[in-house]
Structures are given as structure tokens and as C-alpha cells.
Amino acid sequence: MPAVAAVTACLALTSCGGGSTSSVVVSGSSTVEPISIAVAEFFTAGNEAEGNEKVSVSVDGPGTGDGFELFCDGLTDINDASSKIKPEQIEACESNGVEFIELPIGNDGIVMMTSESNTAVKCLSTGDIYALAGPESQGFETWAEADELATEVGGQGDLPDAPLDLIGPGEESGTYVSFVELAIEDIAEERGQELQTRPDYQASADDNIIVQGVQGSATSLGWVGFAFAREAEDVTMIEVDDGDGCVAPTETTIADGTYPLSRPLFIYVNKSVAAENDSLVRFVDHYLGEAVDSVADVGYVALSDTALAETRERWQSRTQGAA
């Protein structure tokens, strides 16, 4: 009975208290999460300094796919995404009447890395990566065991005869999806395999933990976003060959797309909420304005000036849908 009383009291208080409409709820990719958090910090600080009405901003990073589930149910205002919205997600949004604005905000590269002490591996072809981590590699315990499969799918092969300690993002992560799309999908489709990695690798939702795991074994192979790999000590970023020679992941090769495992980052904004909620508008203005440097600050590759101008234009005109 006291429970009921308390709830009723709170209800009454909310309706008298008001002000809770000025909230911005961000969810989605754990890769984009640090950018959104940095923007939210700037936004909150700036908002306080200007003496505006207080805005409650919350940011979570459950993963791009799970984020879209929430977003397309109208439960969040912004969805961070490390891969472009999928047709079935668009469908889900449409069936719930959620209109969205797609805004590219930066670029990320997925980096294959190994421990610094592993000098045997400098460059991997996409075929090698498929053979080491793809759906057909379950059970391989050494790098060399993947040799045969690697040459079969057009990789270089000639992998070292050393234990293979694989570590990467869990399946709920946007990085997982992008890795599958960038490194696995083409070959897997050709061979009629499922679009997924092998299940027997150490998975973590936290990119930092993956970096730690890579450091922890002399013959490890892990993959994370560029931001995390660049910050990591004692790891080697492996070059990747997609048929045009080995390319190292750098800001330039990721921004211009020559590095094979690179991808754009997005935020998706709920259009109808943006029309009503002034706080959301100011938050996105901030995201693309003063706080845009956050992308580089937290370790990703910033948009080129032209690309940024295009994104701002999409926002200003509230261009609906995916490009």
C-alpha cells in the first residue's frame, strides 16, 4: 500500500514539477558512444554556462542493432550507428511511423592487430582474415591451420605455426557487424556460408578489453575500431590487402576509403521529435557545430570539410531518410 501511495505522490509531483520534457535520449553503437558522450559533456557545460533550462542527457551504448530497435519504437531520440541503417530496420521505423534524419559524422576503420612481440605477421589479405575468423574457421587453434582455407579463398596463406588467440567485439556490437560486412561477407556469400564470425573467439563488448587481450598473448589476433587501436600500446596494427597491395590503417587511408576495413559513422535523429523538442535541436546543432571536433578528440577520423558541409546541409533541411 505504501508503494502505491509513493507512486501516486511521484506522479503528482511530476505533473506539478514539469520540465522533464527537456531531455535527450541517445542510444546505439558502442563505437559512436564516446563521441556522443563527449558532445553531451560539452552540451551540458555550455547549456549551464548560458543559464538555459536544464536538459537531462543520457547516452548508452548497447550496440547499433539494439539501438535501432529502441529508436524505431520511438523510445530514443538519437541512435548512434557504426553501420548504415538496414532495410529491415527502415521497415521497422516506417511501420511505427518513426521518420529519421541520417547524419554521417565521421569515419572509423576496423584494425586487425596483434601483439607487438608477434613479428611474423605484418600484412593479412581479406582471404586470410576470413580463414582465421570467418564461419568456416571454427576449431582452428593455430594460425597455420587456416593456411589451406586461406589459399582456397584467395588469401596469401603462409601463416605462422603458432597458437591463435582470437579476441574481438561481441555480437551485440556495431563493430562486430561492420567486421562481418567488411571482412567476411563477400567470401562467405560466395561460399554459401552464414554471415557471421566463428563462435569460438573471446568476445567482449568493451573495445578496451579487446586491446588488453591482444596485449596479453604473443600470438593474438584481435580487431577493434581505429580509435582504440591507435591509443593502444604494445600492439601492432596489421596492414590489410584487398587485392591492391597492403594498406596500413591511417587517418588518410580511412578517410578516403582506400583502407579496406573502413566505414562511416552516423547518428540518426528522430525527425518528429526534433520538430517539437528544442533541446534535441540544440543538441544536434552542437553535435555538428562547436562539438564536431569530438570525433577526432576521442580518436576517430573527422569528416572532410566538404563531407561535413553536406551533413550540416542534411540537418538544416531536415532531409528525411537514408542517403
Binding site: D60, P62, G63, D66, G67, E69, L70, L75, E172, A205
Partner: peptide, 12 residues
Amino acid sequence: ASQAAGTDQVRG
């Protein structure tokens, strides 16, 4: 716990 933490709304 990891299912709930990973998905926020616990969906999939």
C-alpha cells in the same frame, strides 16, 4: 546480466 546490459531494452 550481459544480455540485459548489451541490449539496453533487452531485445534481440
